[in-house]
Amino acid sequence: MSDTPSLTTTEPLRVPSGGIMLPTLSILGGLLLWELAVRAFELPSYLLPAPSEVLEVMAERWPLLLDQLGYTAFAACVGFVIALVVAIALGALIAASPAFERVIYVWLVIIHAIPKVVVAPLLLVWIGFGLKSSIIFVVVFTFFPMLVNTVSGLRSADPDLLLLTRSMGANAWQTLRCVRLPSALPSIMAGIKISITLAPLGAVIGEFVASNKGLGHMLIQSVGSLEVPTAFAAVVVVSILGIATWYLAEFVERIAIPWHASQRATPRD
């Protein structure tokens, strides 16, 4: 009998994972090169602070950074939830009604094509100064990717299943809940993962022009007063918020669609 392994074995293929060692070494190496370059070229801190100086500022001003982070994170979360609810509801209507799509979709594309920063002064006039403007900016930044992925996912339902549910007398709501929505979940989750990292960006840009609080306001004030290490500290905190939201979306995806091929193929070791 041959000792060659059978090609029909049911044992799952295990893909070795690199763990976190290589990414960690890459980050530490980049920070070390940054530190050495600043010291070798004797760059002033108002031009490019060293990582050690940024970390020192973060340690000294951590209570203030944490307070501003809470304000920015609240605007990002509220705006993202609003965009998610509206995108899924509107996507369901567009997928269900071609006539509705022809009427509304062109307007959505036009609105998405307008540069977001251009409308910032108008939002300040229309909505006012404060948290509301930041939330609206988050909605504007995060809405369209989720809408497009929702429509695409709802339209990807198996036609045979749709015919089967109709033959069994299912109404539009039952078809949406039992067939279209489950088949659309992978696409919806992809849109969520794209949009959720844009939520902190939208909040920060909103704070640039229409807020006296938050990491965006802190960043623009620090740059204006040439406190560049503080500005870098704010950027680092915003980046950490973006990374955290990404991994939160991945966690939700694993819970929502554990049956999908993308999750079964993901190495866990």
Rank of each mutant, 00 (worst) to 15 (best):
V140W: 06
F251E: 09
I205T: 14
F129L: 14
L123F: 11
A76I: 13
W259T: 12
V236T: 03
V223T: 05
S17D: 01
P5A: 02
E42Q: 06
R254T: 09
N212W: 07
V236E: 00
G18K: 00
F137E: 03
T142A: 07
W126E: 00
V148G: 01
L64K: 15
I205M: 10
V86I: 15
A95D: 13
I136M: 15
A190M: 11
L123V: 01
I240H: 04
I243F: 06
V209C: 13
E53R: 12
L90A: 12
L122I: 09
A75M: 12
C77W: 11
E207D: 11
A50I: 05
T165S: 14
A256Q: 06
L84T: 15
M58K: 11
R39H: 05
L47E: 07
V85K: 11
S262H: 05
C77E: 14
A96V: 10
A184W: 05
F141C: 01
S222G: 00
V118S: 01
L181P: 10
N149E: 00
A256E: 00
M1A: 08
D269T: 14
E11I: 01
L48N: 02
C178Q: 14
A120M: 06
L162K: 14
H260D: 12
L25R: 04
L164T: 15
T142G: 06
A99T: 14
T72R: 12
A89V: 15
T175W: 08
I110Q: 02
G19S: 03
I136E: 05
L25H: 02
E60Y: 12
A59E: 08
I20T: 07
F74M: 10
R254Y: 08
V85R: 09
I243R: 03
S17I: 02
S97F: 09
G130I: 05
A210S: 12
L162Q: 15
T230E: 04
I136L: 15
R268N: 05
A261Y: 09
D160C: 15
A157H: 05
V140P: 06
P51T: 06
T10E: 02
V57S: 09
P51G: 00
V106A: 10
V81G: 05
S152Y: 06
L25W: 04
V138H: 04
L48G: 00
D67S: 15
K132P: 04
S239H: 09
T9E: 00
V235A: 02
G224K: 00
A184P: 04
G169M: 09
T72V: 11
V223N: 08
H217G: 12
L28H: 02
Q263C: 10
W246G: 10
A256N: 03
W246P: 06
F232H: 01
L43T: 09
E11T: 08
V125G: 04
I257Q: 02
S26T: 07
A37T: 06
I127G: 01
E35Y: 01
V38H: 00
P44R: 11
I220L: 07
R155H: 03
W62A: 15
A73N: 12
A190T: 14
